[in-house]
Design a protein around this nucleic acid. Structure first.
Lengths: 197, 197
DNA sequence: CGACACATGTAACACGTTACATGATTTG
DNA sequence: CAAATCATGTAACGTGTTACATGTGTCG
């Protein structure tokens, strides 16, 4: 639902045509998440279907303009006002991969984390370079600032992921040492209950 | 694609039936990302369609068993060996929301971050409570450990998001003070070029 | 004129998700 | 026996995504 709301947000500045929405979207997200042009039109179609947007009139240049409806404005207001729920975060692939790797037959958890860590390192490097460059040229207004925020979001997230990997490895090491003497039992008799979240 | 690979990973321990796969999946992800049973069957169907899995034989109890094919094993090996690419991370809704909120008409960025921060706070609280409880009862093996990792992943990520919000607010404040004297220009003449990532 | 970029769609598909429809088995 | 639970599907939909088909300018 990110694209839907992103487009609504851009339309809040006034009517826009499809191609321009793509440009502005990427200007703010800094091409961290590139947006296919076709996607804009399909999404606009669905927004129109749901009554959040109407196609009305045209540009001086003849571009087909889309504008918010009252419902659209209401939806947008609600989006800003409501925090992103913990429950609608998408599944994190890395977390799932590691969760599955623990104790899996023929899987070297260390190799998995190692490979991922290298990748994260490279990513951090790229991000910080971009950030320095973004900061150099006056992080003044609007789009530049938005782009900087997105970039820093990626940096914070990547750093956290790196620290998490370290943490997991450390715990695995400690556990391996602790159970070095007595051979660990192969299979627990029953699956333990799942704690509610 | 997380579910596909998650199921493949679980099948690496041996043939399983659908309902059991769901139980084991949630046992490892700690119900952070609950999995509808129906989803297991639809996904198994698609895995079978793609030749990564075959339905073969039955349980003593008559449960229909699914097993990995060679392709399935290869796919799984590739999954573990390849790091999660930066480019296939899903769009982050919070990042997009903030990027859109910057300088948006009639939007109080501060209110947005404030609401989100409250939510993150509550989440951290819940997570750490669960974590303490998980650590208390011997974080011994397999599923328990996996669940702990997932939980800690959520904690690290949430903390990072909180710090990021702080960071954004601080920057906004500084910027507001700096431009308090001279009124900021409303619209930059041209959209700046998008830096490659 | 030909190449290129811009602008607008649309068709097709993948995955995730839920709701519903059935059997079979257990248990009060 | 009735109710609850387990197990297995399937139908239907939503979003995201890409590939393709055009038209319309512009510029060398």
């Amino acid at each position: 639902m990110s694209i839907r709301h992103g487009l609504l947000a851009l339309l809040a500045r006034g009517p826009r045509y499809g191609s321009r929405l793509r440009t502005e979207f990427e200007a703010r997200t800094g091409s961290a998440w590139p947006l296919n042009v076709g996607q804009v039109y399909t999404t606009l179609g669905r927004l129109e279907r749901d009554g959040l947007v109407v196609q009305e009139g045209a540009d001086e240049a003849g571009h087909a303009l889309y504008a918010l409806t009252d419902s659209g404005r209401a939806e947008l207001r609600a989006w800003y006002a409501t925090p992103v729920e913990r429950t609608d975060l998408p599944r994190d692939e890395l977390a799932i991969k590691l969760a599955m790797a623990v104790g899996a037959p023929g899987v070297d958890v260390r190799a998995v984390t190692e490979a991922q860590r290298r990748h994260l390192s490279a990513a951090i490097h790229t991000y910080t370079r971009l950030r320095a460059q973004a900061l150099a040229e006056a992080p003044a207004h609007r789009d530049e600032l938005a782009r900087l925020f997105v970039l820093e979001h990626l940096i914070f997230r990547t750093e956290a992921e790196t620290r998490w990997l370290d943490h997991c490895e450390a715990r695995l090491l400690r556990l391996a040492e602790a159970t070095a003497a007595k051979e660990p039992p192969e299979e627990p008799p029953q699956a333990p209950p799942i704690p509610p979240v």
